[in-house]
Amino acid sequence: MKVLVAVKRVIDYNVKVRVKADNTGVDLTNVKMAMNPFCEIAVEEAVRLKEKGVATEIVVVSIGPKTSQEQIRTALALGADRGIQIETDEEVQSLDAAKLLKAVVDKEQPQLVILGKQSIDSDNNQTGQMLAALAGMGQGTFASEVVVDGDKVNVTREVDGGLVTVGLKLPAVVTTDLRLNEPRYASLPNIMKAKKKPLESVSPADLGVTLSPRLTTLKVEEPPKRAGGIKVGSVSELVEKLKNEAKVI
């Protein structure tokens, strides 16, 4: 079975972003970039499916500027077989990302598509669901367990009240949550080998998609700052403050 994995290049999760002084966006100059953590989990899951003999080929796709080839190479070093870069310097909103991924799905005909549940930059949590809708596929979002069984997949999902398991016909879309697996690190020999793995570059036009952003960002601001607090010396002082000063208990 062929597995398609979508990986996004985003700001490293350790970096605290700064809002630009002119309020047009966040400052990404000289900021460390990395693979979206949820996409790392998606790659890891695909690799494990291959190790189990369930997956036969892993194709990884990323949409973005030329530099996003770095994240595809990382995925190849982790065990993916082949990469597709959809190159564009334009802003790609989730609906367009889903349309581009749908075009790749049409071409590649994977049985399973794995995405992260959320990009840690946009915090959108949309693309996998949109892709599934466009492709008419079932979806297992926020997955903490994925079990492929013949022409079906059972996905256990992390939901507000606990865990829910759904059964999906293949082909299907899965989006990863934090507890699905713990991603491995790429070894040096595998990083070297990844350089020789095939990586094809296409444009949105090659896939027959014209980007059409629907949302315009009018301004970006810092969140309101919290007023500085105090340190209390003891539990009894804490309780006294909560009762008489903050009046919250």
Binding site: S94, L95, N125, T127, Q129, M130, F142
Partner: peptide, 23 residues
């Protein structure tokens, strides 16, 4: 924007060919 809304709403948006504004 609970897990149910996050699950089905982006599909609604895609079916209507519109963006979703999250959260």
């Amino acid at each position: 924007a609970g897990t149910t809304g996050k699950d089905f709403m982006p599909r609604v948006a895609a079916l209507l060919d519109v963006a979703q504004i999250s959260d």
